[in-house]
């Protein structure tokens, strides 16, 4: 196991480096860091800024300098707020981590539950209901779903209950007006549900398929024939094997998770990474983009690493090969 872990971590380093090249070239090709000076009266302002940022040097040199600064935590300053981008991102990261953590945990639990149930009771009424719901979930625009959640579960429910506060809050992570009972969960509930819908829809279909495959395998028939109790067959033998593909899909979907975070945080006014990206784009604050993409790429690579390790735990063949 130790050598497997070490090998996986070593493989991640070149991936991270190549990703940094890709991100750097992508941002340099699509954005111009001097746009905010275009209205300047001083004709030399853009030229001076280009020299200051080193944009007059060849691209590989720029990349080297940027990487050097990035590793040392010098991520530049925001053009709008003049704050350092690294402290800006650090202050947003925690919010995003909380929402993403609860979202992934909730999605995994629900998706595995639905997937296992649908496979064990294939073609039952509930299986068809779940299939229909997953089609709906995959076609559901996250932002519209979020607006509907706010309308129904925040405003309408409050009116219906006759309370002076909504049961589920739709803005931020805490009430500015002081303490409310279970305030944290009442704030984070709607964003987490909203983030999970598409993940649950996709992952439960996947889990159902891989569970069905595991259930029809020969070793399972053998286990049944030997007289292993049904619940043991399903949960110990089939589920353990059916989880391996799901873990891989979870890792692949991390990019989509960040997409969901961008939308959710914008709608629910959560001061996280996703909202930071949208705000900086709308403000034309391109200084944030490069560090933002780099940090999310790092997150995704680390998550892929964790997924690899989990697969290694679930499937001994992987860590021995």
């Amino acid at each position: 196991m130790f050598s497997y872990v070490a090998r996986r971590i070593l493989i991640s380093i070149p991936v991270l480096l190549v990703a940094s090249v890709l991100v750097f070239v992508f941002v340099r090709a699509t954005t111009d860091p001097t746009t905010h000076l275009r209205l300047s009266r001083d004709p030399m302002a853009i030229q001076r800024e280009r020299t200051r940022l080193g944009l007059d040097k060849p691209l590989p040199v720029q990349y080297g300098n940027w990487l050097h600064d990035f590793v040392r935590g010098r991520w530049g300053e925001s053009y709008k707020t003049q704050r350092s981008v690294s402290s800006e991102i650090r202050s947003k990261l925690w919010v995003t981590t909380q929402v993403a953590f609860f979202g992934v945990v909730l999605s995994l639990i629900v998706a595995v539950g639905i997937g296992v149930f649908s496979a064990v009771r294939q073609y039952s009424t509930l299986d068809y209901v779940f299939t229909g719901l997953s089609f709906a979930g995959l076609a559901m625009p996250i932002f519209w779903f979020a607006l509907l959640l706010i309308q129904f579960l925040s405003y309408d429910l409050q009116k219906w209950l006759g309370w002076d506060q909504p049961l589920f809050f739709s803005v931020g992570l805490r009430e500015p007006s002081g303490h409310v009972p279970f305030g944290y969960f009442r704030h984070i509930a709607l964003p987490v549900v909203c983030l999970s819908v598409q993940l649950i829809a996709g992952w439960s279909r996947y889990q159902r398929a891989s569970m069905l495959e595991a259930m029809s395998s020969e070793y399972l028939r053998t286990a049944r024939a030997k007289g292993v109790p049904r619940h043991k067959v399903v949960f110990k033998h089939a589920l353990r094997n059916a989880l391996i593909p799901l873990v891989n899909v979870t890792a692949i979907d991390m990019g989509a998770l960040f997409g969901g975070l961008i939308i959710t945080e914008t709608i629910f006014s959560l001061p996280g990474m996703g909202r930071l990206l949208v705000d900086s784009l709308l403000n034309g604050d391109t200084a944030v983009l490069l560090p933002w993409l780099m940090v999310t790429a790092m997150f995704i690579i680390v998550f892929n690493l964790v997924a690899d390790l989990v697969v290694g735990v679930l499937d001994p063949r992987v860590r021995l090969s």
Partner: peptide
């Protein structure tokens, strides 16, 4: 493979904003 490490919505948002 590499495309998996960049959130596609973020990349789309950056490009769409410009062009």
């Amino acid at each position: 493979d590499l495309w998996l490490v960049i959130p596609s919505l973020a990349a789309l948002a950056i490009v769409a904003k410009q062009f």
